[in-house]
């Protein structure tokens, strides 16, 4: 199987979908040059500037125009540049894109994809580092996915583009240059299908995106202590594959939920409720959570490292559950 990095896998998905469907176009800031993370590089050369559209720094217009285009027959793929900047288009995402189909009684569809480069790292500071997926999981009308591997990135982005509804795909900045095997043939990864990234018997670690890698590292460390951790990656949060979570908990009876965003009212808090609701009788210990402290992301490296969720915290939480 060919090996490529996460960013190139996304690039491949865009090329495949733009070749397949002439209605698909990309829009964002600096995307003709492939900035900021290389995902759109080479697209303008192949598809031209009409379908690879550099936009002014006008997030409301970038996102809002994509809804206007989607409801009248096009299939936009929006590059949010940094997910943090979606705040400048919150009305467009939350009030317009998420609600239009519902509010209008199903008269219109909104087949658009919002690519959300996000996440902590490299001292990007408070306006370029945040995990904002919880806002959108809490917004009815949006589908939300979070790939952790190059193969999942390609397969989920292709699915997102083909989906007739709005899909947000969160691409962690720290993963763009991570390598992995990607099937040579065209492969879709469905929404609502979790993936067990490592099988185990003692504790289930639920993690998405960058935290999957941390969870796998934690599982290696726990194995040395004789603790067998199973790593479950939901891959999409909306829809959520509850059955795979339930099956894992039925096997391990202990759960650590790891996420990069802040602790309060988060995706992890919701997943903990899902596990409690569907697997209460299976649990042998309280559900443990790993998340960031409830502060903005600080700039200086030691402070940034301090608030970055990591494998060591997962190991500590799992150990505690095994006592």
């Amino acid at each position: 199987m060919p090996v490529m990095d996460f960013g190139d896998a996304l690039n491949l998905a865009l090329k495949e979908e733009m070749r397949r469907d002439g209605r698909v176009y990309c829009i964002g800031e600096d995307i003709v040059l492939g900035l900021p993370f290389g995902v759109t590089k080479g697209l303008a050369e192949e598809f031209g500037l009409a379908r690879v559209r550099n936009a002014p720094i006008s997030e409301a217009a970038i996102v809002g125009s994509s809804l206007g285009a989607a409801m009248t027959g096009l299939v936009p793929v929006v590059d949010m540049h940094f997910a943090d900047f979606v705040t400048c288009a919150m009305d467009e995402v939350v009030n317009q894109i998420a609600k239009s189909r519902y509010m209008f009684g199903g008269q219109i569809a909104c087949p658009l994809t919002l690519r959300m480069p996000y996440g902590i790292g490299k001292s990007a500071g408070g306006h370029h580092s945040n995990s904002v997926e919880a806002w959108f999981v809490n917004t009815p009308g949006l589908k939300v996915c979070m790939p952790s591997t190059p193969a999942d990135a390609r397969g989920l982005l292709k699915t997102a583009i083909r989906d007739p509804d709005p899909v947000l795909i969160f691409e962690h900045r720290a993963l763009y240059r991570v390598q992995g095997e990607v099937p040579a043939e065209e492969t879709l990864v469905p929404l609502g299908a979790a993936d067990v990234k490592r099988a185990g018997t003692d504790v289930t670690v639920i993690a998405t995106a960058r935290m999957v890698g941390e969870a796998l590292l934690a599982a290696e460390m726990l194995a040395e202590e004789g603790i067998s951790a199973e790593v479950v990656d939901p891959r999409s949060l909306v829809p959520l594959d509850r059955a795979t979570l339930a099956a894992s908990v039925a096997k391990t009876h202990r759960v650590v939920i790891a996420e990069e965003g802040p602790m309060r009212a988060s995706v992890g808090a919701w997943l903990a409720w899902v596990v409690m609701e569907q697997s209460f009788d299976e649990l042998d210990a309280p559900i443990a959570r790993v998340a960031a402290p409830d502060v903005p992301i600080p700039f200086s490296p030691p402070m940034e490292a301090f608030v970055t969720a990591h494998a060591g915290q997962i190991v500590a939480a799992a150990r505690e559950l095994m006592k």
Partner: peptide, 16 residues
Amino acid sequence: SGCVLAPGVGLSIQMR
């Protein structure tokens, strides 16, 4: 809010 949807509708008209 309609003011930002409009250029996208216009783009769709152009591309179609």
